[in-house]
């Protein structure tokens, strides 16, 4: 998530000052997103330079910022633009599991299970955040769901890897972790 666009989204509800924006941002992200006030100020200055926000007159003592028409257009454009959906070129977990197949003395099933355990533990921690939050807090639930579904995807991949490793004929074992360039469908 981009801090720039998160700030534009918050300002779409009306002018606000930097410390208020920082608090709102942390609340909306279940306080998982640690931002210092300096980051918020720097980002606001850049948004102002680019004409996406302007200083609001109503401020008084605090410096209020407001969304400009250009900022509003940019927010609408960003909300509907898909983020890159391709996977990173090298997924470290994929590589660890593939490499483990070939390391003497390493039980690859236990490597897979160790990762499953850790992913489940992260899912438990996210679920605790959701469980302890106000059930009306839709924004938080949506954000936590995104993490849970992402982690669940990793877990399902690990479970599938486990089944494949169990079913593999022993003679094929070295081929699985051989030169990964021959397996572009597995390692990208």
């Amino acid at each position: 998530m981009s801090v720039r666009h998160a700030l534009l989204a918050l300002l779409s509800q009306g002018p606000a000052y930097a410390t208020r924006l920082r608090l709102d941002l942390q609340q909306r992200t279940g306080e998982l997103w640690e931002l210092n006030i300096g980051q918020v100020y720097t980002t606001l200055q850049r948004l102002e330079r680019d004409g996406l926000v302007r200083e609001d007159e109503q401020g008084g003592d605090a410096r209020y910022f407001a969304l400009t028409a250009t900022g509003r257009d940019e927010l609408d454009r960003w909300l509907r633009t898909p983020p890159p959906l391709d996977t990173p070129p090298r997924d470290e977990l994929v590589i660890k599991v593939l490499v483990a197949v070939d390391v003497p003395g390493v039980d690859v099933a236990d490597v897979v299970l160790a990762h499953r355990q850790q992913v489940v533990e992260a899912m438990q921690a996210f679920t605790r955040i959701k469980a302890s939050a106000d059930s009306e807090d839709v924004a938080l639930a949506i954000m936590v769901d995104a993490e849970l579904f992402r982690l669940e995807g990793i877990l399902r991949w690990l479970a599938a890897a486990e089944v494949r490793l169990q079913a593999r004929p022993p003679a094929l074992a070295p081929a699985i972790a051989g030169d990964s360039a021959h397996h572009p469908e597995v390692v990208r």
Binding site: L32, L113, A114, R116, Q117, Q118, V119, V120, E121, A122, M123, Q124, A125, F126, T127, R128, I129, A131, L148, F149, L151, E152, L155, R156
Partner: peptide, 29 residues
């Protein structure tokens, strides 16, 4: 379903009728 299991205090893994000695408990935030 891991999303359901994640509500638990402890998650155990069963394979071929055996429980693994690895047990998932919630990670710190």
């Amino acid at each position: 379903d891991a999303k359901l299991a994640a509500w638990a205090d402890r998650v155990l893994f069963l394979h071929d009728g055996r429980l693994s000695n690895r047990v998932a408990t919630p990670a710190g935030v």
